[in-house]
Design a protein around this nucleic acid. Structure first.
Lengths: 176, 176
DNA sequence: CTGCACATGTAAGGTGTTACATGATTCC
DNA sequence: GGAATCATGTAACACCTTACATGTGCAG
């Protein structure tokens, strides 16, 4: 349901096509949201049916014509209503954590490899985020990136701790 | 798909009924997973069909008979295979963050209320987690709780920062 | 000439939640 | 008497991803 409001929210910034919305989500919000065409286009059609957006088809030379959607007053009201509702509390879901929990009888070396892989993944993510932070334009965008950075750093610290525990409770595999 | 392995993994600890599995998930894993009966029972039936688990019905006095599921060798092999696969990287999804991002033209007071509410939510969560940490029994359970604690504390710090920014860029509503 | 960016869409399938249905016992 | 705990299950629906289908122009 919140894809609906994601779209309405982005159309508040400026009118856009479905294709543009996807790029925008991948640029400014990829740390916390995503939108596939399979969701995006049907949702736009539905919003159109309900009068929350309106559309203007724009012909282009050398490339397919685009449908630019603009939010209506009605859509804006609906968005404001939603924003005023208390947000739902999303669960932390990490397949990585589930595996770690269930991995009690996996060989220690495998467990260490898993944790090491996750550490690298988080490190890479942090690097990417720091680059993105430089090019971010609005305070809101920076908030989102800082959120992801803060969580990533926290996870790294947690991982270092786990690694100490795994190393000490059993023999160590040669580090990669 | 990972509910399947969550169930297999818990049945590795000891044979259980569907009802028991739910309690166990809510106890040891509620920070990172959940299991509704609507998923649990159909998944158990499927695992039974495929020979990954076996069942023994146990009659009880004064309450419904229970079906105790036990993992088979085949189920254990499947679980080990899955554990060896690299975990998928789950996205951070927070409706709260999305609202914050989209709330640029919401009145400052509303924005502040939203952030304050989130702060309280996280604070409460941390309190609950610290209690749970005391009663946790295995290192794995403590890992999970520590993960949630670490992230929660990171979010709190981030929130304090956001609050400073919101306060300064506009007049302040009277604090609650 | 291969692949990417532009641009829109549909269909099938997987995954999961909520609500409903049933029914005994125990605690307040 | 009402609510919670024990215990199992189904059905309807919401939601989302993947893969497919289509087609042009430009850069390497």
């Amino acid at each position: 349901m919140s894809h609906r409001y994601l779209i309405l929210g982005l159309l508040t910034e400026c009118p856009m096509s479905g294709y543009d919305i996807k790029k925008r989500v991948n640029f400014a919000l990829k740390a916390v949201a995503n939108a596939s065409y399979g969701t995006l286009y049907p949702t736009l059609h539905k919003l159109l049916d309900e009068g929350a957006v309106e559309v203007h088809e724009i012909a282009q030379v050398g490339r397919p014509s685009k449908k630019v959607y603009r939010i209506t007053e009605r859509g804006q009201l609906e968005l404001q209503e939603w924003l005023k509702q208390p947000p739902i509390t999303d669960q932390i879901r990490r397949e990585f954590l589930l595996k770690l929990y269930l991995a009690h009888d996996l060989p220690t070396a495998d467990l260490q490899a898993m944790v090491r892989a996750r550490r690298e993944e988080v490190t890479d993510m942090l690097t990417r985020l720091r680059v993105e932070r430089e090019v971010a334009q609005t305070p809101q965008q920076i908030w989102i990136i800082d959120y992801a950075l803060q969580l990533g750093e926290a996870e790294l610290e947690w991982i270092r701790n786990i690694q100490k525990q795994i190393t000490t409770h059993d023999r160590v595999a040669s580090p990669a």
